[in-house]
Design a protein around this nucleic acid. Structure first.
Lengths: 199, 199, 199, 199
DNA sequence: CATGAATGAGTGTTCATTCAT
DNA sequence: AATGAATGAACACTCATTCAT
């Protein structure tokens, strides 16, 4: 039915305008400073329309978070077994690059669930789930190659911590560094620290 | 004048009651959910008195941040040269333990300046300064021992990222881990990844 | 034109679907909590269609009110002369029963114009007219039989008050009573109080 | 302590300004049309201050309702045993007059809990309690004197219904009647209908 | 020094009504 | 005749900050 398709289309477009706008505002202002008003202005829709699509601000962020979590989990899961030689390091380097691309887009959302005392439990939940899934992926890889005295259980979150926060410093806070060099270095450090890489 | 002395003493006591209370509330509720009202209730003083001591809420957090920055910088600076052998790893381990003690106390403040889009520029400033000082300390140590292909300039923030976030996961978010084992592992990973440690 | 006939038929059906739904929602939620949204959902029609049939929410309630007023007036007018003996009481009893049947259906509408400060003047008007007509009916009957010191002018509204509110308590607020006994009692009290009934 | 007394006094004054204003606005506009904004304007205080004293609009109405319930219950309880002779009627007449005075003041509140589908459960509760207490008082009196075929259990609410609604018509809706005559008539009707009065 | 009542700007949310399809 | 997405005015509530006592 064309009419059904039309209305659905309009609705879908508005929805994605809202999510895009939400993403932009989140990136600009951060989670706590984001106002519904900012979002609807950015989406060029009226205030009331927002509530046709989302129960409240948190609801939109949660929708973004779910989208984001899927993307990040898939990206992280894209890492294959890491050998101790130079090709292991090269694989890590490529994988980090893919992650950095994802982070450049979804960083604002990741940060919203990383914040201290996330006010919305549903959002915290999405974050906790993503955290668990990501560390599980990493744990599996580390377990295959960890050097002595490195427990994959503990190494996985440490590795995630290092990567996420470093991206945050560099990609979001705009600390000026040569990005190529950064990825090179991180690949090296991770290879040596977590995978027994021999440089 | 004795009276002046008395009031001064009273003033000092009120001031520290406020800072203690601020610390507690910050830990409990997090930066954004902290209300002046919570602080004055915790300090058992009146609402108006708050503004005799601090220009606004941010002013108190800034004061806490400065205190905290001093402590963290000193702690981090307490790391001596790190050798590649097992005693280097042991030194790192002890130093991490001292840092964890500091973090247990000052974590809430550290997180307030680590948050995405810190609203108060003065607070952001304190955080940026602390970041710079800490990475400078680390850079110096790493420079003395970095393995090939590890640029101290880039490794320092990565190391800080890993330590701070891991403490955050474990000490603040209450992810259950054996803390002794965690410190052991971190010491090993850092030793290997940043200081050319050989297992 | 057959097509016109068809559409007319369709229009009538939609109209009555709306009025039925309005009645149901009014009964469920009460006048102030009734939302256009609830009505169109109950009628299973679209939001916009509502405004093809009614100027606004008040317009629908007014239409219901007119329907209801006709019914109640006719019911009340159905009371014949009331004698002072036991058959007068029996007549009252039957008449009250007919009224109770009407109230069970139209109660929600009656209450909407009985409320304190009815916002819509047109609705208030319908209520005032019904009030006037009903009290006129009652006045005529009371005038034929009122005991000494009972002015029909004043007794009529008092009698209406007693009946309407008692039905409200019992039929709408669901205060549990034996309905037969209630009607018996009311018939007796009204007979004695307003018609000089003797035991 | 004078200072404590002063502040308390100020607070009390504001509180009563709010309750007075609430009463006035309720009388003017009715429960549903009453806005917090109207109340604070009438009380000549700021919007925010309202929330220092009441959790929300309902909270204020509830406070008024409790005050009102006490008054009405006491007034109704003021009716002594009613004899069947003319002095019984005279007693009723005086008692009704006292009730009318109370109603003139508290009518708006009484109506707020009498409305169809009271939205605030706490308010409904106060109303239900008042209803129960008042009918209990009436029941006791009626039981002492009820004519045959009048069950006090059922007569009490009917009597309340008649009195409350008649006052409502006359005192609030401003139907023009001679108030003295009205009270005379009501006394007679009640005396005959509920207490076996013999005219 | 200390108090706590008062302020008002800022923000979120609801819902009757309109209008392009 | 019917649809349902969009609108925006109206209203509730919070909280940092001020100020008379």
């Amino acid at each position: 039915m064309p009419s059904e398709k039309v209305t659905r289309t309009r609705g879908k477009r508005t929805m994605s305008k809202l999510m895009d706008a939400g993403m932009r505002v989140l990136a600009d202002r951060g989670y706590h400073a984001t106002r519904v008003d900012d979002i609807v202005k950015a989406a060029r829709i009226s205030h009331g329309t927002f509530y046709l699509y989302f129960a409240d601000k948190e609801d939109l962020v949660r929708a973004l978070a779910e989208e984001c979590a899927e993307d990040v989990k898939a990206t992280v899961a894209g890492l294959g077994p890491v050998s101790q030689g130079p090709d292991g390091r090269a694989q890590l380097r490529e994988w980090l690059e893919r992650w950095s691309v994802s982070y450049r887009h979804y960083g604002p959302v990741v940060r919203s669930w990383m914040e201290d005392h996330v006010p919305d439990p549903a959002l915290a939940q999405v974050g906790a789930k993503a955290f668990a899934d990501i560390t599980a992926s990493l744990r599996a890889r580390i377990a295959e190659a960890a050097p002595p005295h490195v427990d994959p259980e503990l190494a996985a979150p440490a590795m995630l911590a290092m990567i996420e926060r470093t991206f945050y410093y560099v990609l979001s806070r705009g600390i000026a560094v040569d990005e190529e060099a950064l990825l090179d270095n991180m690949a090296t450090m991770i290879h040596r620290g977590f995978f027994g890489g021999t440089g």
